[in-house]
Design a protein around this nucleic acid. Sequence first.
DNA 1: ATATCATATCGAAAAACTTCGATTTGAGGT
DNA 2: ACCTCAAATCGAAGTTTTTCGATATGATAT
Lengths: 102, 102
Amino acid sequence: MNTEYQDQVTVFKAFCDENRLQILEMLRSGEKCACKLQENLDIGQSSLSYHMKILCDSGVVASWQVGKWTHYKISEQGCERAKQMLEAISTTNQTDEDTNCC
Amino acid sequence: MNTEYQDQVTVFKAFCDENRLQILEMLRSGEKCACKLQENLDIGQSSLSYHMKILCDSGVVASWQVGKWTHYKISEQGCERAKQMLEAISTTNQTDEDTNCC
DNA sequence: ATATCATATCGAAAAACTTCGATTTGAGGT
DNA sequence: ACCTCAAATCGAAGTTTTTCGATATGATAT
């Protein structure tokens, strides 16, 4: 039961940090490699790597290697999954509108 | 610049905790008062109150008083706002697809 | 093979989040 | 006015997240 929600936590955690949101905004304009992302952020290299891992784990960002460099882009598929999750969470299914407890 | 993202963090934080996701699932079937929510959760009264505050601050949940009791329900408006945010975050606007740095 | 460079990982410190029990607040009931 | 009960707030403890500097890994170039 608890593990059921763990998936959703992993996804939405992507959007719960200002640095990650800034990274996502940068990726909106097209794929980027880590060094490019680093330029506009006020964090160290290891911190960026940490955030990119969280973003990739969420599925919202995809990465691939090109030589020494790691490239990142927004994953359409991952975003679609996030949207579906949000839709599922927020859609009411009024089964007991009348069952008031107090 | 930082405050721009703070809004989004506040919204998505609602979905980043298993207890809060469980609360949201309970609210999907209709409005509930705190005591009803408490029954199905393994946390104390003050912790529930803490989570409800985060949910209400996000806008995803709305609350109102009925006598001594506080009632909660999913806010259609708040959910719509969250969806729009997610849409905005994940929609690519390919302005520099060619600008590869490395 | 050695050196170099980009990124990932590690370990520890700092910051933020979550939890609890105790107290406060605020609405009703007597 | 006083008591009771539901929920909010407080302060402290426990847990998780984020950060950094140092080191490891892995690919390329010399």
